[in-house]
Simulated scan of single mutants.
Amino acid sequence: MTSLPSVRITYCTQCQWLLRAGWMAQELLSTFGADLREVVLVPGTGGVFTVTCDGHLVWDRKRDGGFPDAAKLKQLVRDVIDPERDLGHADRKGDRP
C-alpha cells in the first residue's frame, strides 16, 4: 500500500498571505480530495511563499516570480502525484510535460 502525498504551503505572516495560502489549499483539496493525505499551512516570515509536494518544491514565489494561479498550481502538483491525470478545464493545451 502506498501512502498518499502531502502538500505543504509555507506563507509569510508578515505579508499577511494566510488568505492566499488558504485559498490555494482549498483549490488543491477541491481538485485532488481523497488523493491527498493532507494539505498543511505553515507560517513563515521574510516574504516566503512556497509549495512542496512530497518534498518536491513545486513553487517558490522568489524563484518563480510571484504567485501561481490556481490552474498552474494544480498542474504542478498533478505532475508530482499523478502525471497522467487529466485536470479537464484546468489543463491548457501545451502545458502538459
Rank of each mutant, 00 (worst) to 15 (best):
L28Y: 04
S30Y: 05
T31V: 13
T31E: 08
T31R: 12
G33V: 14
G33L: 09
L36M: 01
L36G: 05
R37M: 12
R37V: 02
E38S: 15
E38C: 12
E38Y: 01
V39Q: 00
V39I: 09
V40Q: 04
L41S: 03
L41T: 12
L41F: 00
V42A: 13
V42Q: 15
P43V: 06
G44V: 05
G44L: 10
G44M: 07
T45P: 00
T45D: 13
T45K: 12
G46C: 08
G47I: 05
G47L: 09
G47Q: 10
F49K: 06
T50I: 11
T50P: 00
V51M: 06
V51A: 06
V51K: 04
T52S: 12
C53L: 04
D54Q: 11
D54V: 08
G55F: 05
G55I: 08
H56I: 15
H56Y: 13
L57K: 02
V58K: 00
V58W: 00
V58Q: 01
V58T: 09
V58G: 01
D60Q: 11
D60S: 15
K62V: 14
K62R: 15
K62G: 10
K62S: 08
R63A: 15
R63Q: 12
R63Y: 03
D64P: 01
G65L: 06
F67R: 00
P68Q: 09
P68K: 10
P68A: 09
D69E: 02
D69F: 06
A70D: 08
A70W: 11
K72H: 08
L73F: 10
K74M: 14
K74W: 04
Q75T: 00
